[in-house]
Structures are given as structure tokens and as C-alpha cells.
């Protein structure tokens, strides 16, 4: 009995017991699949079969052939545009809620996340009802005697609108949480010291909330870059993105090696975006007091 208790009190045993299950899960279901993708990307596929014949042809194809590169650039541009629009839209909303929301702050923030209470397909269907050829927007235009907009549904613009609608709560929440911890009195200090409202915003509010904003950008950029369902349902014939091409490699095309290389390229591109954003966050300049001397 005494021996067992001693064993349980041993810090190494306690550490292993606490960390073990989580670590095992990560190794089994995250690291091993990820590593296998990296390995496959240097192999080749023949008649739906992976052959361990080490080469870099897949990468040459993904980064060298326009048919693949085009989709990579398009997806990156889409992710950048969607992030930018979410940013411009979410900032004032989050600011108003954080500053003037009073006791309704939490309710207002939860309301912005209300669409998440439904599934992704339902949300896309809702977008179709709004943007479709006889959807709300065009019906309203026709009621008012205007011409319906033909390009609204099943275009890349519809995809973008759908993605913005989908991811804006993430941006809003990240900025809101940052502003929630922001001391608005600092703005009064800036004003008393001669800063006009916009100057005070860019001198004080923006830099002190840039870390939260950068997190919001990552939270929108990465899933938009990886979005496949939304462009497939809303994007129409030209809506295909890099991810849709990637899926194709694992589906009917059966070129797993090429698909794996595309996956690795996506992963690296995403990490690069995170890295670039991280470099812009200087902890001591973010008002982060835990950064040490």
C-alpha cells in the first residue's frame, strides 16, 4: 500500500499520467498522418497505387505548372481578400460592442456567432436563398423595378460573400476579446495630451489590440484558404479552389502523391502566413507585461 502511494506521488509518474493520453492521441492521429503525407509527397502514384520511388516531381508540378499554381495563387488571394473584408467589417462592430455594449456585451457577441448554431450546409443553403437567381437580393431588386444581378450566384464573388459570412464571427470574437481587456481610459489620456480621435486610435487603440487582430486574421485566413465546401456550393463552374483540386487528387484522379505534395504546400503556406503575422507582433510593444525585462 505504501509503495503504491509513493509511486503515485512520484512527480515523474504524475507527469506521465497527466501528459501521456494527450500525447499519445497527438502522435497517433496528428503526427503520424502528417508525416505520412510528407513521405507520400516524395513518392509517385501509378494506377491508383503509391510507389516509394523518391522524387520531387510532385513539387515541380504544384509550383511549376500553371494549372496548379493558378489555383494556389487564387486561394491565397481569396483568403487575403476575405480576411481583409472581415477585418474592416468586424473592427467597428467589436469596438462598439466592447465600448458601448454595457450589460448586453455578452449577448451581442453571442448573437454574432448565432449562425454557428446551425450546420455549415444549412448556412450555405441560406446564402443560396439570399444570393440565388430568384433569391432575396434579386427579388428585392425586381420588386423595386431594377434589373436582377446575374453574376450574384455561382461565382467567385458569391464564394467570397459566403466565406465572409462564415468566418466573420471568428474575427469579431478575437478583436472583441482583445478590446475587452483594453483600458479605454488610455484614449482619454491621449486626447487630453492633444491627440485627435483618429490619431488616438492609431497611436493607442490599434497597436494595443494588434495582437488580438492578428489572431483574428489567422483564424479567418487559414480556414478560408482551406475552404472546400463553400466554393463548391456557391462558386459555380469557375469556383474551384486549390483545395478542390487537392481533393480531386485523392478522389477520382487517384494521384495521392501529387495530392500529398499539394497538402504539404498548403501547410507550409499557412505556416508562412502565421509566421509573418507573428513577426509583426512585438510582445513588449503589445503592452504585454509578461514578456520580462
Amino acid at each position: 500500500m505504501k509503495g503504491r502511494r509513493a509511486l503515485l506521488l512520484d512527480p515523474r509518474v504524475r507527469f506521465a499520467t497527466l501528459v501521456g493520453p494527450g500525447a499519445l492521441f497527438i502522435v497517433l492521429f496528428l503526427l503520424i498522418p502528417l508525416l505520412s503525407i510528407v513521405v507520400f509527397s516524395f513518392w509517385r502514384t501509378e494506377s491508383y497505387e503509391l510507389i516509394s520511388d523518391w522524387n520531387v516531381n510532385n513539387y515541380e508540378a504544384v509550383l511549376g505548372e500553371w494549372i496548379y499554381l493558378k489555383f494556389l495563387l487564387k486561394s491565397l488571394a481569396m483568403a487575403a481578400a476575405v480576411s481583409a473584408i472581415c477585418l474592416v467589417y468586424a473592427w467597428p462592430c467589436a469596438y462598439l460592442i466592447a465600448k458601448h455594449g454595457g450589460r448586453y456585451k455578452l449577448v451581442l457577441v453571442l448573437l454574432t456567432a448565432a449562425p454557428f448554431l446551425t450546420g455549415i450546409l444549412l448556412r450555405i443553403t441560406a446564402m443560396q436563398q439570399i444570393l440565388g437567381p430568384i433569391g432575396l437580393v434579386n427579388m428585392a431588386l425586381m420588386e423595386l423595378g431594377a434589373q436582377p444581378i446575374q453574376v450574384l450566384m455561382y461565382t467567385n464573388i458569391a464564394s467570397a460573400v459566403g466565406l465572409i459570412y462564415l468566418w466573420i464571427p471568428f474575427m469579431l470574437l478575437a478583436i472583441y476579446l482583445s478590446l475587452f481587456n483594453f483600458n479605454f481610459e488610455l484614449l482619454e489620456v491621449a486626447k487630453v495630451n492633444g491627440a485627435r480621435p483618429w490619431r488616438a486610435f492609431f497611436e493607442v487603440t490599434w497597436p494595443l489590440n494588434w495582437m488580438g487582430t492578428a489572431i483574428g486574421i489567422v483564424l479567418v485566413f487559414i480556414p478560408t484558404f482551406a475552404a472546400s465546401v463553400t466554393p463548391r456550393f456557391l462558386g459555380g463552374p469557375d469556383g474551384s479552389m486549390f483545395v478542390n483540386r487537392l481533393e480531386h487528387q485523392f478522389g477520382s484522379a487517384g494521384t495521392w502523391a501529387l495530392g500529398s505534395a499539394m497538402g504539404v504546400v498548403m501547410c507550409v503556406a499557412s505556416l508562412a502566413v502565421i509566421f509573418v503575422l507573428w513577426r509583426t507582433v512585438r510582445l513588449r510593444r503589445a503592452g504585454f507585461t509578461g514578456a520580462g525585462a
Binding site: V189, V192, L208, G287
Partner: peptide, 19 residues
């Protein structure tokens, strides 16, 4: 508005800009 009054002000919580 305060930014046109040419005054200085010192606050109880110091309120220095942390960044």
C-alpha cells in the same frame, strides 16, 4: 474638445501607455 485645450493631466492609475 480636450485635445484643443492645451492642458496637462495626471491620473490616479498613472495610465502610462504600456506599449
Amino acid at each position: 474638445p480636450p485635445y484643443l485645450r492645451r492642458i496637462g493631466m495626471v491620473f490616479q492609475d498613472f495610465l502610462l501607455f504600456p506599449h
